[in-house]
Simulated assay, not measured.
Amino acid sequence: MINLDIELLRTLVAIAKHGTFANAAEAVCRTQSAITQQMQRLESLTHKAIFTKEGRNKTLTEHGELLLRYAQQILALHDECVRTLHSADPEGIVRIGAPHDVADSIFPTVLAHVVRNLPRIKLEIQVDRSPILMEALHRGELDLTISSRFDSELAGFVIRRSPTVWLASARYVHDPSKPVPLILADEPSLYRKIALTALEQAHATWQTNYVAPNLSGIKAALHAGLGITARNIELISTDFRVLGTSEQLPPLPDVSYFLWMRRAPLHNHTRHVYDLLSQHMALNATAPLP
């Protein structure tokens, strides 16, 4: 196995860029004879003719053209590696949000990943309802947020797909002969929409027993046995149980949680955090959205 010298490849690229050995020698601050010796060394290593003489000029052979293309790719990757290793860690404050229902599940994983890989980034966190977080993102009050809401105007990617289930208190007893007693978030609410749509499509009857402005209120109503609610599995605990077809309740769709980045102007460190998370935490089946 031969090892190609990176400087020989750099000289080959310089010759192709500047047209002649003489011009390349001037560009890299070497003598023309040194450039010639380097190319002779490269031909010796590869056991291939890289240049052919046409009149007073030398042009690349077919093997030379192939080697040039690889040399350009190798140098690009090499130089990117060197820049990355020697560049300072990004530094700054990133404001990041998450909805209440993933504050104890997805969010800690995201925060830990940033802190572990970008230790000079300082995080300011906000936990709130998805609509409020998305409004803050659009106003520039947040840099990044996790949200169950889709927004075609923002750059983002799916960070988790979570099944939605019917939840009730562990002590709750469901009576399928009666209207479904619902605990709902007030508008706007994705889970409210999911619950009502599923019941409508199943031609089921329901009644709203309790409306809450936030997740804490919904959990309190569940604990009190006031009814059931549609929520993602992140909320399951020993205090709650999942209801389903045995209680004659319709199935519910999965919910996608996105990580969204606010629109420009952006600080470079915000882009660093977003790129890090998109490379390591985006679902494999989902490419980052433009």
Results as ranks from 00 to 15, higher is better:
Pro176Trp: 05
Gly225Pro: 01
Ile218Val: 15
Val127Thr: 14
Asp186Met: 12
Ala198Met: 08
Leu42Gly: 15
His174Ala: 10
Lys178Trp: 05
Leu249Lys: 04
Ala170Ile: 09
Asn284Gln: 10
Cys81Met: 10
Ile93Asp: 06
Gly92Ile: 01
His223Glu: 14
Lys58Glu: 13
Leu75Cys: 02
Ile125Gly: 05
Tyr70Phe: 10
Ala212Thr: 13
Ala185Glu: 14
Asp101Met: 02
Val211Ala: 10
Leu226Cys: 08
Thr61Val: 02
Lys219Leu: 15
Leu199Cys: 08
Gln32Arg: 14
Lys193His: 10
Thr205Met: 12
Leu266Phe: 04
Asn23Asp: 11
Arg30Glu: 11
Glu65Arg: 15
Gln37His: 10
Phe51Leu: 03
Ile233Val: 15
Ile96Gln: 00
Ala155His: 14
His113Gln: 10
Gln73Val: 08
Val211Asn: 08
Arg120Ala: 10
Val94Ser: 03
Gln126Gly: 07
Ser189Pro: 02
Asp186Thr: 11
Arg262Val: 04
Ile35Arg: 06
Pro253Glu: 04
Asp5Ile: 12
Lys178Asn: 09
Val114Asp: 05
Pro179Trp: 07
Ile183Ala: 03
Ser256Leu: 07
Leu42Arg: 07
Phe21Cys: 02
Ile121Cys: 06
Ala170Thr: 09
Tyr210Leu: 13
Leu249Gly: 02
Phe107Pro: 01
Ala195Met: 00
Asp104Cys: 07
Ala136His: 13
Glu54Gly: 03
Ile15Lys: 00
Pro108Ser: 01
Ala76Thr: 12
Arg161Ile: 08
Asp128Phe: 04
Ala49Val: 14
Asp128Cys: 02
Thr20Glu: 03
Gly19Pro: 05
Asn209Ser: 10
Thr164Ile: 02
Ala76Trp: 03
Glu234Trp: 13
Ser237Gln: 04
Leu60Ala: 00
His267Ile: 06
Ile50Gln: 06
Arg241Phe: 08
Leu67Glu: 05
Val173Cys: 11
Ala287Ser: 15
Pro163Val: 01
Met261Pro: 01
Ala103Phe: 00
Leu123His: 05
Lys122Asn: 09
Leu66Asp: 06
His203Ala: 15
Val165Lys: 08
Gln248Ser: 15
Ser169Phe: 00
Leu118Pro: 00
Val180Cys: 04
Leu137Ser: 09
Phe150Gly: 12
Ile50Met: 08
Thr208Arg: 12
Arg171Phe: 14
Ala202Val: 07
Gly64Arg: 03
Gln37Asp: 13
Pro188Met: 01
Pro288Tyr: 00
Thr20Cys: 02
Pro251Ile: 06
Ser130Arg: 04
Ile194Gln: 07
Arg30Thr: 12
His267Met: 08
Leu190Arg: 11
Ile194Leu: 14
Glu91Arg: 15
Ala22Leu: 11
Ser87Ile: 01
Phe258Ala: 04
Ala224Ile: 07
Glu200Asp: 13
Asp275Asn: 13
Ser152His: 12
Thr59Ser: 08
Gly97Phe: 03
Ser216Thr: 13
Leu276Thr: 05
Tyr210Thr: 14
His63Ala: 12
Asn268Met: 12
Val242Tyr: 01
Trp166Cys: 00
Arg241Cys: 10
Ile121Tyr: 02
Arg231Glu: 15
Leu68Met: 00
Leu243Ala: 03
Leu144Glu: 07
Ile106Glu: 02
Glu187Tyr: 10
Arg161Thr: 11
Tyr70Ile: 09
Glu7Trp: 06
Pro99Cys: 02
Leu142Asp: 05
Met1Asp: 14
Leu77Cys: 12
Phe258Gln: 07
